[in-house]
Design a protein around this nucleic acid. Structure first.
Lengths: 341, 341
DNA sequence: CTGAAAGCGCTTACAG
DNA sequence: CTGAAAGCGCTTACAG
């Protein structure tokens, strides 16, 4: 027994077959006679043989790895999607290589190149807005690719997600139905974030349709953090105490807004309505429970795994657009506009 | 210009040098004459050459990849640590390969083997309790290794974390100081989770020291979910309405407990004190703000990156134990025991 | 169903 | 400082 880690040649020798047969036994077992398979399995056991991923990848030109880049994993909504993407891939014996861009397109480009260079068989990105070189690089490598978290019927790329514009509209209509006319917005940074932008535009357009306009001073963009949102609502209400409805870019922001409202002793929803976005688990346990939009993150993750694996199987890069629904969840943070006294 | 992706040989030809020199130019630039380096860079640019990670790994026996397995990424506290681990590695040109075990030791073993097989230069795990084969497998591959999220002065393995027993003690002492004697516990599953177990034991021991014992019926274990914790507190209080203090295994559980208390119209902390664990960002914005233990997750992530890279650099696997502090953060969910009437 | 052999694209002593 | 060449550990037509 030598000291170095065993290779396929060691297994072959031990089982008295060629390395080709060992390789087949590992990859296409039914092409190997059962009794030979038996011998090989035993040898593998005895030697504690573990195939080298690098050698495998080099020889087969397949890494069995899928890359994904999300803005951040520090948001339950992305981590949920990733968990499901990952378990879908694991079941098919693929591994997920995860990176995060911190909401920066340049960083995303760097990550894409890094993933491509280490070798991946497919890639999933979040959103539709990417550095142009990202699309070039992926095209060059000719691997399956999908934009997650976005649905656009006109997209030139495969996408799996929902229509953020529609979601924004639903939010605005709900608030309009309740009689609100004084709107405030706390949004994530919209530059480089098409989801944030579309949600906002959905609200904006809907209001415009009924002749309402949101002045810039009632729109605050900030980082997706509870603390930032807390500050933002204070700022917003300092400038515009007449505001009766605040729509937040996601649930994290809404939680911050709720805490700021509490600090000002504003009753939600009696004096101020607040909406979130994503429907994180805890939002229904908040007091008052948060009105929000349900993001189908699990299903997005599952579909992404399915799509990528399918494309790899078929050796194709067929364009596919999957639209999921994101329904409005009305709970306790939204109510009738307070009567002016 | 051919159609296939360019290799190092193409670059060498274009730059009129050997492949060895191109390789050196990439890995040890100062061993190459500046003018030659210049030619090579130009060739790389022109060809759009990207080195093959697989070939590199096979030839050098280094993958520049670090593996990490956490119980779940769907918890802000782990994702925070991972973000920092990742950025530390990225800076040194290493990639993080992330997997999650779902709190299962068997699953963790499977992930470890999968990571080892694809090739990793180092590995970080969470907690000290692992499948025995995990330690065997890692030892066999002789790569740097560290147990995160745990500190044990006697550990045979490197560890970076804090003492969960101490943290539990602090929690119990705080509650004791406030005069509580009727304790309830909502814990994560303690089997296979040394952190959950130690936190609980810290509380238990401290109470025992003053002659208090927690009956089994006042200890509920459940999954780390807001909903589960909500149910658990209801169950606990149905059985033991005399309970005045409930210590929760983490902040997620505490949020669920808070919501259940609200549903029962129990005032926190006047009628019921509740503690969390981790100090997630939003806990200080809850109403009432949560008393909890601050888990140094960012620092754990940073230290892990530093340690692993250091070991790789030195080609050693030196044992190192880093203890970080986890301080009690007293906020509004804990108060004096209600006077019996 | 099995084997001999070329090849995947790099790195790395070794020699100069 | 640079090059020729062996080698990393697999897979995969091809032949039988």
């Amino acid at each position: 027994m030598t000291n170095r880690t065993p290779t396929i040649a060691d297994v072959a020798e031990q089982a008295e077959v060629s390395t080709a047969t060992v390789s087949r036994c590992l990859n296409l077992p039914d092409k190997v006679k059962p009794e030979v398979r038996e011998r090989i399995s035993k040898a593998i056991q005895q030697l504690g043989y573990v195939p080298s991923g690098a050698a495998r990848a080099l020889a087969s030109r397949r890494t069995h790895t899928i890359g994904a880049i999300v803005p951040t994993i520090d948001n339950a909504i992305f981590s949920e999607a990733i968990q499901h993407l990952q378990s879908g891939l694991t079941r098919a014996n693929y591994t997920l290589l995860l990176a995060n861009s911190g909401y920066s397109l340049d960083e995303e480009l760097r990550e894409v190149n890094s993933l491509l260079s280490r070798g991946i068989d497919g890639i999933v990105l979040v959103g539709e807005m990417h550095h142009p070189k990202v699309y070039d690089a992926i095209k060059k490598h000719a691997i399956p690719y999908v934009n997650l978290w976005t649905y656009n019927a006109q997209s030139k790329y495969s996408c799996i997600g929902f229509d953020h514009l529609k979601a924004g509209q639903q939010l605005a209509e709900h608030l309009l139905d309740l009689g609100h006319t004084e709107f405030g917005i706390i949004s994530g940074f919209q530059e480089n974030n098409d989801r944030a932008l579309l949600r906002f535009q959905g609200i904006q357009q809907t209001l415009k349709n009924v002749g309402l306009e949101i002045p810039e001073s009632k729109i605050i963009e900030c980082r997706y953090s509870v603390e930032q949102a807390n500050k933002s609502l204070h700022e917003l209400l300092d400038r515009h105490p007449e505001t009766t409805a605040v729509s937040c870019g996601n649930d994290v922001l809404a939680i911050g807004a709720l805490s700021a409202a509490r600090e000002r002793s504003l009753k939600v929803p009696e004096q101020l309505s607040i909406t979130g976005f994503d429907n994180m688990e805890l939002t229904r346990f908040l007091s008052p429970a948060l009105t929000t939009i349900n993001s189908p993150s699990k299903r997005m993750g599952e579909h992404a795994a399915e799509y990528i694996l399918e494309q790899i199987q078929n050796k194709s890069t067929e364009l596919k657009r999957i639209e999921l629904t994101a329904e409005l969840v009305i709970r306790e943070t939204t109510g009738k506009v307070p009567s002016k006294t």
